[in-house]
Computed example of a mutant assay.
Amino acid sequence: MPDIQDSVIISKPLEEVFSFAANMDNSTKIMENVVAIEKLTDGPLQVGTKFKETREIRGRQASSIIEFIEFIPNERYVVQSEANGLKVIYYYDFKPTVDGGTKVNFEGDIHTSGFVMKLTKPIIRKILKKEDGDHLSQLKKLLEGHAEEEETTMKD
């Protein structure tokens, strides 16, 4: 069973949702604790693409390397970060809905190694649920909110 999970239906086409979600530059908009993101590898998004993510956690900034370990355009991507005995893997699956929207499923797995990290896993799980547990609802708001703004602009 995953340590964190969520799903959401977004009233936008699959390609648009996947493209926005997989674009790590949008992390600062989707996850409120992410304050900076920097691509470390050249080329298009693919397995092996790495980013440096900086989060603000309890008033301090901490950075980690995020790596794409699976990437199937418009279907699925998986990213992981690993540091100091803590490995976090986030799985994202995208499916079209019958009404032209997109269902996004998210699962997060937390792996610890070392005595101290194993003891603190419940605390780490709680922190990550608080920080990242609702990011799909933020993704939905961003994508569906853009459509409403565009429609309003077009009517003016």
Rank of each mutant, 00 (worst) to 15 (best):
residue 155 K to Y: 08
residue 86 L to T: 01
residue 16 E to D: 15
residue 100 G to A: 04
residue 57 I to N: 08
residue 78 V to D: 01
residue 82 E to F: 08
residue 124 I to S: 01
residue 4 I to K: 04
residue 6 D to F: 00
residue 73 P to A: 14
residue 14 L to P: 09
residue 94 F to V: 13
residue 45 L to V: 14
residue 16 E to Q: 15
residue 114 G to T: 00
residue 112 T to K: 08
residue 15 E to S: 14
residue 142 L to T: 03
residue 77 Y to N: 08
residue 100 G to Y: 11
residue 39 K to Y: 06
residue 62 A to K: 13
residue 144 E to S: 06
residue 56 E to C: 13
residue 27 S to F: 13
residue 8 V to W: 01
residue 53 E to M: 13
residue 15 E to H: 12
residue 71 F to V: 03
residue 40 L to H: 11
residue 118 K to C: 07
residue 117 M to Q: 13
residue 7 S to R: 09
residue 66 I to K: 11
residue 89 I to M: 08
residue 84 N to A: 15
residue 100 G to F: 11
residue 68 F to W: 10
residue 96 P to Y: 06
residue 62 A to Y: 11
residue 47 V to L: 00
residue 41 T to Q: 04
residue 39 K to V: 02
residue 137 S to H: 12
residue 19 S to M: 04
residue 13 P to M: 07
residue 149 E to Y: 01
residue 45 L to P: 02
residue 119 L to M: 13
residue 4 I to H: 02
residue 6 D to S: 10
residue 127 I to Q: 07
residue 99 D to C: 05
residue 89 I to C: 01
residue 61 Q to R: 15
residue 108 G to S: 03
residue 23 N to T: 09
residue 67 E to S: 12
residue 109 D to T: 08
residue 110 I to S: 06
residue 118 K to G: 09
residue 23 N to L: 02
residue 98 V to C: 05
residue 75 E to C: 00
residue 150 E to W: 10
residue 107 E to T: 08
residue 91 Y to L: 07
residue 18 F to T: 03
residue 125 R to C: 03
residue 81 S to Y: 12
residue 58 R to C: 07
residue 69 I to C: 11
residue 132 D to A: 14
residue 19 S to P: 06
residue 152 T to W: 12
residue 106 F to L: 14
residue 30 I to T: 03
residue 44 P to R: 09
residue 112 T to S: 10
residue 50 K to P: 05
residue 88 V to T: 10
residue 63 S to V: 08
residue 123 I to R: 09
residue 147 A to N: 10
residue 7 S to P: 01
residue 103 K to G: 01
residue 85 G to P: 03
residue 62 A to S: 12
residue 152 T to A: 15
residue 105 N to M: 10
residue 148 E to I: 13
residue 150 E to H: 14
residue 85 G to N: 02
residue 71 F to E: 02
residue 36 A to G: 15
residue 140 K to M: 00
residue 78 V to W: 01
residue 93 D to E: 09
residue 40 L to N: 06
residue 33 N to M: 11
residue 109 D to R: 13
residue 111 H to I: 14
residue 74 N to V: 02
residue 91 Y to A: 01
residue 13 P to L: 05
residue 108 G to L: 09
residue 49 T to S: 01
residue 23 N to C: 08
residue 120 T to K: 00
residue 3 D to Q: 03
residue 84 N to M: 15
residue 11 S to N: 15
residue 156 D to V: 14
residue 114 G to H: 14
residue 24 M to C: 11
residue 102 T to E: 05
residue 95 K to M: 04
residue 88 V to F: 07
residue 127 I to R: 05
